[in-house]
Design a protein around this nucleic acid. Structure first.
Lengths: 341, 341
DNA sequence: TACCGTGCCGAAAGGGCTTTCGGTCTTTTC
DNA sequence: GAAAAGACCGAAAGCCCTTTCGGCACGGTA
């Protein structure tokens, strides 16, 4: 609660210079590793700076260079669990340097997003990461922004933008390949909202893997919601209509949890009678089920880190390219597909 | 990706002044609503600023001792689900005004926290919210900071600081009172890590409610981890040793999920044979169980909003007081304690 | 007419830093 | 031993804004 000005006044470069017995200019050069400073002098300055716990004022610095050392993260759904790992990855990559993150949550509202965008620009952020809530393309912020923009998770609908999004197609393929390699041939698919690109891409990947093995899905793929309840209901239908099914590829871990639940009700043991694989590798769910859930991890933290890195590069003038990049995903094997020996 | 310098150079105050035919000083005064500017002049300046889409450079502004319109949020565990609602609440309250949020994640590391604190101060934030990961007191950032600080979730260990934390004692009381009002008298308690203040406070609240009704816990309270697995194991022990138990108060929704699972294995129907109540009201878990889970909601978003409001007040010079405030929690009734009619 | 408020406006300082450029002092070269 | 070349350092300008304070013009009062 203190609000004093007291003796704890911030120490400035001139304090350091005075303490080291040099001019302000020399102190600046010494601290920034520039030429034309004798090693001895440089050491003296660094020592003084250290002793005084000097930290340069980014305001003054930014006033010159035009750079503020801040990056804006514009999310549309802070609540969603996809945001968090991405945000962490980004914060991670930035935190290593001298960059700070402005966080804005647009709550999925375009108006609010525009408002926040304006606020970020007026704060002179050096770059922006836009984090969407689905993997469906979203409207571009436009090409005429004064700072580089990278889209994460939701790609931009404008191919001139740079977007990073997880490769759901590969994820679907990976999941089914794993099931096949476990000796399963009667594979059903239960997924969430069919209007999500994620649902369609994963299905397409699954189909590709099946086709390559000369197989087909058991029954029609089932779509409805990304919830445990739906997983339970859908599993009941599948097990009734197709008792010979030996594996279920689920569109999310939540759905998979519901499937596991119903499987138990039907007296099917997992993984022996029925293999179940989830998606997202949401540990709270995947690691606490009985048995633990094999799942596909989208490496979101990695994605966030990459997005940050791209923004960095762009700020440094590197051409970071354009288009949508589909980042690799990863299979995490647990007990729901392979019995532990 | 545009990063031009071209003609789109940022427009400065002097551009506005020139365009309006006044001095820089007058333009500044006009835009900031200060005295000593004739209405006509002011209008002319505003018009010019608008036409040029002028936005003041926050660097230059912050260089002066003025306000920066930014607030720092220093979290220690971004991953934790308690952060998010608090963060949302804060972002909400700030977003309404003209304030932006600097987000820093210390990853639970004191060194990193100090580093981020420095960064925030050197960016001249107007205030700071410190969000902890547990309700246990945490070390104070100190009293000699140049900006107001509010602690959310984790209270500061220094009573001179202002802290907002959920009232776990009331939560425990509320949970047990609800069970009693449902006609239960044989109540057991399964909770998580006993070193958490949250675990102890909830237990104390539960004891208080029981005592008032002339009751006692069935068996000893069971502590271990905040996981579903533990919930399952602990429930098995309870149901074996105390078959007459008619309600279980769980320290978290995860634990409660495990308890529900085991109850089913034991052939106990919920809520008829056994009432189960969780804690945290984590909807993904609570709304997707069979039956849905009654739980205690800590109103974290509200807490975040209040923390932001307090920081606002402090910035405006209002005395916001000190000490730790325990904010009210709320009972959310679902099917695991009362059969739907 | 001489004087004094009052109302508006502008010159200039300042805030902390980087950078250019000229100046001093030491070293090398013929 | 004198001149040219380096090596090192400091004065000062500039980034964009806010704020103080002095100046100017105007209207009213003695």
């Amino acid at each position: 609660m203190s609000n004093n000005e007291g003796p704890g006044r911030t120490v400035t470069l001139s304090d350091v210079a005075r303490s080291a017995g040099v001019s302000i200019a020399t102190a600046s050069k010494a601290l920034n590793g520039r030429e034309d400073v004798a090693p001895a002098t440089r050491a003296r300055v660094l020592e003084a700076a250290d002793a005084l716990a000097f930290t340069p004022n980014p305001m003054a610095r930014g006033l010159l260079a035009g750079r503020t050392g801040t990056v804006g993260v514009l999310t549309s759904d802070l609540e969603g669990r996809f945001m968090i790992p991405i945000l962490m990855g980004a914060e991670d990559a930035f935190g290593a340097g001298q960059v700070n993150v402005f966080l804005c949550d647009a709550r999925g509202d375009a108006i609010r997003e525009q408002h926040h965008l304006k606020a970020l620009l007026s704060r002179r952020v050096d770059g922006i990461i836009v984090v969407g809530r689905q993997t469906d393309p979203r409207p571009s912020l436009g090409q005429d922004l004064p700072v580089p923009v990278v889209y994460a998770y939701s790609p931009s609908d404008d191919p001139r933008d740079l977007s990073l999004t997880p490769d759901n197609y590969a994820g679907g393929r990976l999941a089914v390949e794993h099931l096949i390699s476990c000796g399963r041939t009667r594979i059903a698919h239960i997924s969430g909202d069919p209007s999500y690109a994620a649902a369609q891409d994963r299905l397409a990947g699954a189909h590709a893997a099946l086709a390559r093995a000369g197989l087909e899905l058991v029954g029609e793929p089932m779509f409805s919601m990304w919830t445990e309840h739906w997983g339970r209901d859908a599993a009941a239908m599948v097990l009734q209509r197709h008792p010979d099914v030996d594996a279920i590829f689920c569109g999310s871990d939540q759905i998979a949890r519901g499937v596991l639940d119903t499987a138990r009700d039907f007296g099917r043991t997992v993984p022996d009678d029925l293999a179940v694989i989830g998606y997202d590798n949401w540990e709270v769910l995947a690691r606490n089920s009985r048995p633990e859930l094999t799942s596909i991890d989208a490496n979101l933290q990695q994605l966030g880190r990459q997005a940050a890195q791209r923004v960095f590069d762009a700020i440094d003038g590197v051409d970071i390219g354009e288009g949508t990049y589909h980042l690799p995903v990863r299979l995490v094997i647990r007990g729901s597909t392979i019995a532990r020996q």
